[in-house]
Design a protein around this nucleic acid. Structure first.
Lengths: 135, 135
DNA sequence: CGGCACTAGTTGCATACTCAACGAATAGCC
DNA sequence: GGCTATTCGTTGAGTATGCAACTAGTGCCG
């Protein structure tokens, strides 16, 4: 019975994660959609925006993979879409010519600043009352 | 500063959820793939398997939507795939002929029993250390 | 130099997802 | 009965994703 209980709690916890994830993700998508962004797009923009500014918000694709929960190919295409929309710029990395620098354009920075409060608001709304951890 | 901290914690919590979700989901997929299942497939099988047995593990599609984090159309196609693989059976609901009953076949029940321990193991592995679920 | 292994990023292909539109059955209302 | 609104499930179209294969560049060892 003790084992059974532990199993059940694990199961419940997983269901919770699934539920919170789905609801929040969906809501972020919904809120960002009018601005032409999806949740993953925002994640990348956000990462670039919070890069050490001395880098000029520049970042190797390599650095992004592993911080976003996306395959390398998906990230490549995502950056392609962002570039097409004029939100980021790609440039070859001089030191290692295999690499690609990705940088936020002014437009990208502006859009990020615009939608950041929206995303935060969703987080506050969806993650509140969920305080199972912390404290 | 206080507000800023709260924002940051929210952000961190969201990142945690994202990370745990991605890692666990991916691992479940990896473990289930050799058996021809994905994570969503298992979720539906699991739901059907834990239905009140007096129903004969039968369930309306309607009941499933809302318990899986999938659109109705995605669920419809998923059930289609499961049916094609002989894991579930569809039948029209006599009382409300718009509805569709979905029932586990013996093969489906057997496969569920086979992979359940695998999924549980992943949960134990990935969700442990994330939170000492005390008690 | 030449060759081999490895890494970075992109692309072809197959698959699964969402949204919107649809067809069928039901429920309510006159 | 007949009519409209609603619900249930499926299907069409467009998009995002992952895997595997590919190109290009680097590093190492001979």
């Amino acid at each position: 019975m003790a084992v059974n209980t532990a199993e059940t709690r694990l199961e419940e916890r997983w269901r919770d994660i699934l539920a919170v994830h789905a609801r929040t993700m969906c809501e972020i998508d919904r809120v960002l959609h009018p601005h032409g962004l999806g949740a993953s797009d925002f994640e990348v923009l956000d990462l670039l925006a919070t890069e050490p500014p001395e880098q000029g918000e520049q970042c190797r694709v390599q650095n992004l993979v592993g911080r976003v929960h996306l395959s390398q190919s998906a990230l490549s295409r995502l950056i392609g879409r962002l570039e097409k929309d004029g939100l980021v710029e790609r440039s070859v990395c001089a030191e290692d010519r295999r690499g690609v620098w990705v940088a936020l354009t002014p437009k990208g920075r502006a859009l990020h600043a615009e939608v950041l409060p929206l995303q935060r608001a969703v987080l506050r709304r969806m993650l509140a009352g969920q305080e199972l951890q912390g404290a």
